[in-house]
Structure formats: structure tokens, C-alpha cells
């Protein structure tokens, strides 16, 4: 049984008579212990996907349809009370800006203790010793238990957030752009930490990022999102060696690569679509070099090709 199975998920933002189809019919599965990265540009729906899984879509966002099966239970069937036992415990999250999630008036260590005592029935002393252990695990010296968030650098704050995220012994961490506000050296440190936590604790990680290079470096599987659709999903190595979807190909060509011999500028023509009125058929067709009449008319089905999911007419309609 996969750890997480998302089936035909639709999450829309409904503003009067305008409907933004931010996540539109997305399905994927991930196994225990995997690092899966969802990569996409602004407005692709990747953050909405992450928030949908923990059922924290902000107003006017709404999950319209689909299933989110986590450890055999459909999260969309649970009451809010049942969901709140899973959220923050079995599934925890790390966001881009740790300052919005950390309490500025509370010692960092005490915040971890609070998280632990909320979810486990243990004494404060036990929780304190666990908090110290988790701080050390993420690379913060235990003596900084008594520091306040403002005494931490950006990277240390993100480490503290990660300590809180693992303190409830989750099966899954959802990390949405966790290093986007950090410098590149610190980003590399944090990514190394995520991989180590996966190896040592066996925790599964969903990483959400705009950076396909980062996705390539850290993940086992990659999901490429475009305009609310998951256009390709599969093993990182396979996607690297042979990207199937024209958008994935375009992204890999366009990304500035420090190790490549640069000869010309490559980019995808056109602009990302306005999701209140997405293009007909395949949403990528106005920017696609392979687009045909069919792509304008008909939305492609998701098919399995070469061990992965792809949503493109180039690969036929037959499952």
C-alpha cells in the first residue's frame, strides 16, 4: 500500500462567478521513505496541492472532488477534529518563512516542547529532553534551547522549524519552498538535512519548489505541474534522462545550468496562462512546439509511458 495516494484531486478557488482551477484532476502515489518534489512556476498549483493534502486551503479555496488516501484512510472523509489529529502529527509542514510559524515571544526549545506535549502524553521533563535531541538532530546545539527566534539566523530558524516538524514523529513532511528565502549555501545545507532525516528516520517528504535543479538534486520522484495539471510524474533519473512532456523538456532546457557550456538563450515562448480562463484542450498547447489541432480541442488523458505518468497527446490515449 502506498503511503499516500491522491486520486483525481480538484481544488478550486471560487470568487463570485470566477473559478480558478488551481489543482485540476491531479493523481499520484508515493511510497514510504520517498522524497517527492512537485516543481512548477508561479500559478502552477503546486502550493495549492500541498495545502490540499493537509486540508488547509485558505478561503476561497475549496476541495471540489477527489480522494487523498493517507495510510489507507481518505483524509477528505475525516471530520475536522479527526483531521486535526493527523495534521501537525502524522503529517507536518515546513513553510518558506519560518518567522510566520515561530512564536517570537517564546523560547525556541519551549515551542518544540509545546508541539510534543500537544500530541503525546508525556511529562514536560521528558518532552524537554526530546526537544534537545531534536535540536541536535537538525544541527542546532542543544544549549540554544533557550534562545528566541530573533536570535537565530535565517537558516537556523528553518532548522528550528524542521525540528518542530519532526518532533511529532510524522510519516510525512510537506515542505513548501523551504529554502527559497535562504542563500544558496544554506539551501544546500538544509537539503542535505532533509535527505539525512529521510535516511535516519525514514520520514517521507513532499518538497514543493519552483527550482527544477533543486528538485533534480534531492528527490526520488518528480511531479511537474503546469497550470493546475500534473503533466509528468515519475522517477527523477528517468525524467532527467528522457523527459517526455514538452513542458518538462522546455524547463530543463531553460534552467540556467552552471555546469553547461552556454551557447544560446533557451526559453519557452509565451506566458503562463490565466487560470480563470485557461486555454482549451491541453493547457500548454499555446506554448508548445509540438501542438496540433487535437491539442487545442481535447484535453489529453494521463497515460503511463516508460514507467511514468504523462499527460500529453504525443503519447496517445491508451492507458
Amino acid at each position: 500500500m502506498p503511503l499516500l495516494s491522491v486520486q483525481n484531486l480538484k481544488s478550486y478557488y471560487i470568487l463570485g462567478d470566477e473559478v480558478v482551477k488551481a489543482v485540476d484532476d491531479v493523481s499520484f502515489e508515493m511510497e514510504k521513505g520517498e522524497i517527492v518534489t512537485f516543481v512548477g512556476e508561479s500559478g502552477s498549483g503546486k502550493s495549492t496541492l500541498g495545502l490540499s493534502i493537509i486540508r488547509l486551503l485558505p478561503y476561497p479555496g475549496k476541495i471540489i472532488d477527489g480522494k487523498i488516501i493517507f495510510k489507507g484512510r481518505d483524509l477528505l472523509e475525516l471530520s475536522e477534529k479527526e483531521m486535526s489529529k493527523i495534521r501537525g502529527k502524522e503529517i507536518s509542514s515546513v513553510f518558506q518563512d519560518p518567522l510566520t510559524s515561530l512564536d517570537p515571544l517564546m523560547r525556541v526549545g519551549d515551542q518544540i516542547v509545546e508541539t510534543i506535549t500537544t500530541h503525546f502524553d508525556i511529562t514536560k521533563e521528558e518532552a524537554k529532553s526530546q526537544a534537545r535531541k531534536y535540536l541536535e538532530l537538525v544541527g542546532i546545539p542543544a544549549e540554544r534551547y533557550y534562545d528566541y527566534p530573533h536570535q537565530f539566523s535565517g537558516g537556523m530558524r528553518q532548522r528550528a522549524m524542521i525540528a518542530m516538524a519532526i518532533a511529532t514523529q510524522p510519516s510525512l513532511i510537506i515542505a513548501d519552498e523551504p529554502t527559497t528565502a535562504l542563500d544558496v549555501i544554506v539551501q544546500a545545507q538544509i537539503m542535505q538535512l532533509f535527505r539525512r532525516l529521510r535516511d535516519e528516520l525514514g520520514v517521507s517528504i513532499i518538497l514543493i519548489t519552483h527550482d527544477i535543479s533543486l528538485a533534480m538534486e534531492v528527490s526520488d520522484k518528480i511531479g511537474v505541474m503546469y497550470a493546475g495539471h500534473l503533466v509528468e510524474y515519475g522517477s527523477t533519473i528517468k525524467i532527467y534522462e528522457d523527459p517526455l512532456h514538452p513542458y518538462t523538456k522546455g524547463l530543463l532546457e531553460a534552467v540556467p545550468n552552471i555546469e553547461a557550456e552556454v551557447t544560446e538563450f533557451k526559453y519557452i515562448p509565451g506566458n503562463p496562462p490565466d487560470l480563470t480562463s485557461p486555454p482549451s484542450g491541453c493547457r500548454f498547447h499555446p506554448r508548445c512546439r509540438y501542438a496540433t489541432e487535437k491539442c487545442k480541442r481535447q484535453e489529453p488523458k494521463i497515460v503511463v509511458r516508460n514507467g511514468r505518468l504523462v499527460k500529453c497527446h504525443l503519447y496517445g490515449d491508451e492507458a
Binding site: 544558496v184 537539503m191 533534480m216 538534486e217
Partner: peptide, 26 residues
Amino acid sequence: KALMAAIPVPNPTRKKKLILTGEVPV
């Protein structure tokens, strides 16, 4: 050197070079 080693490269087969510890002072 450290800066260049830390920059992600769209290549999952590339071996990661040494990552510098610490951060730029606040």
C-alpha cells in the same frame, strides 16, 4: 568555490561537492 559547489545543477547523477558549514553573519 563553496558558492559554486552549493548551486544546484539539474542533474541527479552529479556527485555533490563539499558543502560549507555556517552562514553569512546576520
